[in-house]
Simulated assay, not measured.
Amino acid sequence: MALLNSGDRVTDTLVIDRLLGEGAFAEVHRVRHAYLGLQAMKLFKKVASLEETHQMLGEARLLSTLGHANIVRLFDANTVQTPEGLRGFFTMEYVPGGSLESLMAAYPHGVPTDIAVEVMGQIAGGLAVAHEQDPPIVHRDVTLANVLVGYDGSVMRVRVSDFGLAKRADPFTHMASARGTLVFMAPEVVTNGGYSCASDVWSVGTIAYLLLTGHFPYDDGAGPFASYSFARFNRPLLAPSRYNDEVDPRLDEIVMATLERDPRNRPANAGVLAAALRERREPAARPPDEHARRLAAEALRLYRVPGQLSRATELMEEAIALWPSLREQHLPRLRLWRRGVVM
């Protein structure tokens, strides 16, 4: 039985609409805000103390540092009295389209290649913001269920959600402990080698491979859970184009790189992956430095224009990814823009 039910009041402005789902640690409700409309609320189920509640709200603290169009937005964090006692919660944007599981169900004969590539690029774009933190934030549980798909008008917008397992990496090794969902885990995670940005990249590659081919990578045909062991990674990996003739050689190359068994041979982080996907889509006619400077200049022009901060942020992110030499000059400003701060 849910801790809170339809009609229960959470705060003066927030009322439970309906239960969306639940897991071992939390319930997710759709809630109605008196002024802001529908939101999603994550309510923690099992806590023993107020201190533990504050620890669980660490996910909200992480989310509050990551402002990006492809990361679910955080609105509020607090505690609420339930029949089982005080419980922590936070509210975030409600995405009515559901997760990538729903997207796959909508295409029983296979997700169109252009949609699969767009999903991959947007996931990478969102994770890139986490990976560029100092030290990096690794998600550790990038799965179909934790990627939400919504639409701005007719344009698809993907949001990475559920940062409940996310963790700041060790500042020296840039590694975090192994957690997550087995079938999306990189080989080094399966063997308890720790989690890195490259391990998140593997998870993105697993999603992309599944969307493009309908198969999990390194699957023997018996299903990913039927024979899941490290030995499965010793099988040769078939390129996505072997299943899907719409996959071009460059896309084959990018996806296969994300699924290299040695993390040193993968894109080092999601920013590198996002840049490779952009390059495939829009090969720059100008030299990278010139094109990047033009993008940065346009971002600097737009950020003071009312309503254009989001677009300016996107352009600056693209400029830095295209030409990393701009990072030192513009990254502090970009971090402020992501939080909606204009200086």
Rank of each mutant, 00 (worst) to 15 (best):
Q308H: 13
P283I: 01
A285M: 06
L273A: 03
P283E: 01
A284Q: 10
A296T: 01
E314S: 15
T313S: 15
A321I: 06
P288M: 01
A268K: 13
L277Q: 10
M316K: 11
L302F: 08
L273H: 09
E290P: 00
P287A: 06
A297T: 13
N265D: 11
Y303I: 11
M316A: 12
Q308K: 15
I320A: 07
A274S: 11
P288A: 03
A312K: 14
A297L: 04
P287C: 02
T313Q: 15
E282Q: 10
P287V: 02
A275E: 12
H291A: 13
A270G: 06
E318R: 15
R281G: 05
A275S: 10
I320T: 08
E290V: 11
A296W: 02
L315F: 08
E282A: 10
A319E: 11
A321L: 13
L315H: 04
R264S: 09
L309H: 12
R266G: 07
A270P: 02
V272K: 09
A296V: 02
A276M: 12
A268P: 05
G307Q: 13
R293E: 03
R266L: 03
A296C: 01
P283T: 04
E314L: 14
A297I: 02
M316E: 06
R281I: 00
P288C: 02
E318F: 01
P287R: 01
A292Y: 00
A274W: 05
E314Q: 15
D289S: 06
P283N: 02
A275P: 01
E318Q: 15
A297M: 07
L277W: 07
R304Q: 12
A275F: 02
L300W: 07
R264V: 06
L315S: 13
R286T: 05
